[in-house]
């Protein structure tokens, strides 16, 4: 009884606040929670005609099929390899760049540099892949021209090469984002107490020594947090860029879980298998959920920052 009267007072006092919340809550229930209910499809043989309530139950068949298929193993491996490559190559560069830029002395130069390296971040995925295709065109692109200039012959088709796909994907991503990703470290570095630097200078420390003993310790907590959080999203590599870069020739390395889901469902005409696709998506989401919960626990322990 006491609880109920507490609520009544709260509602009377703050009803306007709850009115505000009505719209966002409705939104989240419809567009985030209703699809979660749709997950039951993973355990059905869904048919659009019968709907979710009328379709037949098949237990774990869809999952069994997924784990037994060759394509699924390939998709899982490709997802993890591409993701780890992105982290290993892409994570340290923004940190080094921020440290380097921060240690330079001309403020104007630093500002201009930062503006330039940040800009490619705002290029859309479609345009980014379009740029890749133009520049790496083996005949008409810059890549073809350089290849011809060096060897005298046009080079092979790098865009249709399974061996080159990962490098192109990862390094074009680094080109586009290293500047932007360094902003958070630059921010952390700018809050370093200048008296540390002055004290080190009085002791005769060189600039390099100050980077090592003042700057790096200062951003280490940020680095650790970012790395942990980044590791939590190993399974959630984006669909958009991979899908656009994908072609029949590079599927061996470019087929990842999210593109595979799309291929067996919405892209397939006539034989779209919604239940199978939902099952794969669910498998992916559960692993992602576990990973992010674990890293968040670790992050809380190590650096007292967490996602929630």
């Amino acid at each position: 009884m006491k609880k109920r009267s507490e609520w009544r007072t709260a509602l009377r006092r703050d009803w306007q606040l709850y009115v505000f919340l009505l719209i966002p809550i409705t939104y989240i229930l419809i567009f985030a929670y209703a699809p979660m209910g749709g997950i039951v499809m993973a355990f059905q043989d869904y048919s659009a005609r019968k709907g979710i309530l009328g379709s037949d139950w098949v237990g774990l068949d869809n999952f069994r099929r997924f784990f037994e298929s060759y394509n699924s193993r390939r998709a899982i491996t490709n997802t993890i390899v591409l993701s780890l490559y992105t982290i290993v190559a892409g994570f340290p560069i923004p940190i080094c760049f921020a440290l380097m830029l921060n240690s330079l002395r001309r403020e104007k130069f630093k500002k201009v540099t930062q503006t330039i390296v940040n800009m490619p971040h705002f290029i859309s995925v479609t345009v980014m892949v379009g740029i890749l295709m133009q520049i790496f065109n083996p005949r008409t692109g810059l890549y073809g021209a350089i290849g011809e200039w060096i060897t005298g012959n046009y080079p092979g088709d790098i865009l249709g090469s399974a061996a080159a796909f990962r490098h192109l994907y990862v390094w074009s991503g680094i080109w586009q984002n290293f500047g932007w990703n360094s902003v958070i470290y630059t921010a952390a570095l700018s809050s370093v107490d200048p008296t540390y630097h002055e004290a080190a200078m009085l002791d005769g420390a060189t600039r390099l020594q100050r980077v090592r003993h003042v700057d790096i310790p200062a951003i280490l907590p940020t680095v650790v947090t970012m790395l942990i959080l980044r590791m939590g999203s190993v399974m959630s590599i984006g669909f958009e860029k991979v899908y656009l870069m994908q072609n029949g020739l590079n599927m061996a390395t470019s087929d990842i879980i999210s593109t595979y889901v799309y291929q067996v469902s919405l892209a397939a005409d006539g034989i779209s298998d919604f239940s199978y696709a939902t099952a794969i998506g669910l498998f992916n989401n559960v692993i992602e959920f576990i990973l992010i919960t674990i890293v968040n626990k670790i992050s809380k322990k190590v650096s007292e920052t967490s996602l929630w």
Binding site: A32, I39, L307
Partner: peptide
């Protein structure tokens, strides 16, 4: 507003969607 009743439950309703989602196909069917 710190003193809003049910604040933490409602917040959780939102943050949970950052961690877990229905996926591409259920969203499409919805």
């Amino acid at each position: 507003r710190q003193n809003l009743k049910g604040r933490s439950a409602i917040s959780f309703l939102f943050t949970f969607t950052m961690l877990f989602s229905g996926g591409m196909i259920p969203k499409y069917i919805l």
